[in-house]
Structure formats: structure tokens, C-alpha cells
Design a protein around this nucleic acid. Sequence first.
DNA 1: TTCTCATATTGACAAAAGTTGATTTGAGGA
DNA 2: TCCTCAAATCAACTTTTGTCAATATGAGAA
Lengths: 104, 104
Amino acid sequence: MESCYIQNAKVFKAFCDENRLKVLESLRSGEKCACVLIEDLAIGQSALSYHMKILVESGVVSARQEGKWTHYSISPAGSARAMELLREITTPLEAQEDSICCGR
Amino acid sequence: MESCYIQNAKVFKAFCDENRLKVLESLRSGEKCACVLIEDLAIGQSALSYHMKILVESGVVSARQEGKWTHYSISPAGSARAMELLREITTPLEAQEDSICCGR
DNA sequence: TTCTCATATTGACAAAAGTTGATTTGAGGA
DNA sequence: TCCTCAAATCAACTTTTGTCAATATGAGAA
């Protein structure tokens, strides 16, 4: 079983890479399909696929299949969860209001 | 010159590693000196030093020298900056016309 | 069915990150 | 000054991450 530290680290890995931040920046203006992201970032197709997998698994981005195209967008729920996690991680205990770490 | 994507990625690297999340968790209960963190995490001295450097440079942790000891604590200002950055990165821009994507 | 095209996956490789043990630095006390 | 000790740095090494080119998958069209 993985520690919650490793699990939480995975959420923030979404924001730890230059290309993934570029993807998020591009998605701020709305849903984009993979082909557009490849052009925007000037990145290889398999590299984009690799980064999108990390972003989707972190919960911050959601994917929508439509025919052979995949459309990606920022997930408000996933973003909110990342925000909440960051808030919790950096909030001193006496000032803490509630917790979402490891189901505690 | 470094892109702002690379700079922003560095802030979130603070939260991308199991041991750094453990350090932050330990610091939530208050300022700790390095010797205590080494015991808490069961980590080598040089490994802790390596991680503390990353945490301090990200701005999320601040260091206070007192004699030969260094005391670390969560920086409220640095944490607030990280929160604000995360919020900005994941907030969609004003809704725009649907863009034409993949011939649609 | 077969063809085409968008995306996912694989494997080889390169680069970056993390660990370990040894050494160095630098501040306080003798 | 010299000694001690906490922390930083270094060098060698291992592990993880990211890239590229090739191949596989899977859905729509023919």
C-alpha cells in the first residue's frame, strides 16, 4: 500500500513539469483536443500522451472522448481538491479547520 | 532566461516528494530544528539538507539560524503564494466563443 | 471486411532527481 | 588559537522522469 505522502505527491506532480503547465495554461481558455495541444506546445505526439495521462490521473484534467478525438479540459472538482490539499498541507495544525488527507 | 513555466514548476516541486511532504507534515505542529526532522523522518543528514534546500528555495518553508542550529517552519507568505499560483493555473479564463477544433 | 487517422503504448535512451558516505564549512565553547 | 558539532556540500551511484521513434489499438469511414 502506498503512503498518503506518495499519493499526495502524485497530485502535485501535475504542476511540476514545464510542459504540463503549458497544457494547463492552454486549457484555461477552454476544452482542447490533443491535436491542438500538440501544435500549441510544439511537442511530440507520444510526449503529449504521456503528460496527459499524468494530468488526467492527478484529477486536475478530465478527458472526453468524441469519435476518434479526445478533448481535454480543466476539471473544476479536481482543481478544487488540489487546492484543498495544498491548503491542508501548509496550514499549521492549531489553525486547521478540516482534513481530507487519508480519509482522516 | 528561464520560462515562467519552469519557475512555477519549481514552486510545486516542494510538494512532489514523499520526504518533503513528511517534512511539511512535521512542521505543521510548529517550528522544528533539523536534528528533530532527521529523527522524525528517519532520513540521512545530507538527504534532509538536500530536501530542506528545495523547500526553502520554493518559499514554502523558512529557515531561522540560532547558534549552530537551524530551525525550520512553514512560511505563511510562501504558502499563500503557492496557493494563489495554483488557483491561477487552474482557473479558466472568461468564457469565450466555442473554438473550432478538429474540424468541428 | 479493410483503410485511415487519432491516440496509446512500448522500448531504448537521456536527463534529472534522490540517496549515501565522506568531507567541508562555520559558529560556539574551551 | 583549537576542538566540537550542526549543517552544507561533494562525488559516486541508483532511481525516476521525460523524449523519441516505432508499433499497437481502436473507432469511423469505405
